[in-house]
Amino acid sequence: MRRDRGIVFAWQLAIGIGAVASWQWLVGVKLLDPFFVSRPSDIAIRIATWVTSGVIWGHLLITLEEAFLGLVAGAVLGITLGFVLARSPLVARICDPYITMLNGVPRVVLAPIFLLWFGLGIWSKVALAVTLVFFVMFFNTFQGVRDADRVLVDNARMLGASERQLVRHVLIPSALTWIFSSLHTSLGFAMVGAVVGEYLGSSRGLGYMISQAEGTFDTTGVFAGMVVLASVVVAAGMGVTRLEKWLLRWKRSEA
């Protein structure tokens, strides 16, 4: 187990370094044009200047705030509705075509409308993130609750569980596996929602920085923005994994 982890990490590191090094090298020997793909050293320097000068923090904070609010609101709405519909099959059947329909709407098309409705501030971005997160959380929770072992539910009911207790002691823990796997996806989606919203209309945030850089064909700036974005998502994902490990610790012994 411990040795495996070392091997996995070594490989991850090797692949990352290999990719970055060959990128640097390909640009160095002029096989790739830095105008289109920039180069890793430039990107690193750009990020370093952003950090030392402090310009990045304000933008990053705004994006994180939007993504976080979108994630929380989307998750709460998605999980709640997932539970309600999973527990009332009739309502679920009535709502089914509408949910499919709404989920089919391309979010990029919604972005300008949200700008119109909620203004250029953070709320239009939060709304966009919510539309992305909500459906992932909803479908997974719905499935997770539906998937709950029939015998466990019956046993808890025989032991005296009310509907609310059933949700708390059986259905939520049972759906938690599903909810967590969707939380990983949702994390990325929340960031995408925030950044795309900023990209299309804003004066602050990572998405704004990226769009500014694109406006001046500054590929280094674009890549630097993406790297920051990716790092944040990876870090948040690791946090979720730890929480998941702790909450689902009863599972480890099965593996």
């Binding site: 015998v151 046993n155 808890a156 005296g160 002691h169 823990p173």
Partner: peptide, 28 residues
């Protein structure tokens, strides 16, 4: 409501430890 039922299949809650499982009826 006058009966307990011990199922043929496993019916313990996997996410509760043994003590919590045994006390479940009381907790509820």
């Amino acid at each position: 409501r006058h009966a307990t039922y011990m199922f043929q299949q496993d019916a313990l809650l996997p996410w509760k430890d043994v003590r919590e499982n045994v006390g479940l009826g009381l907790t509820l």
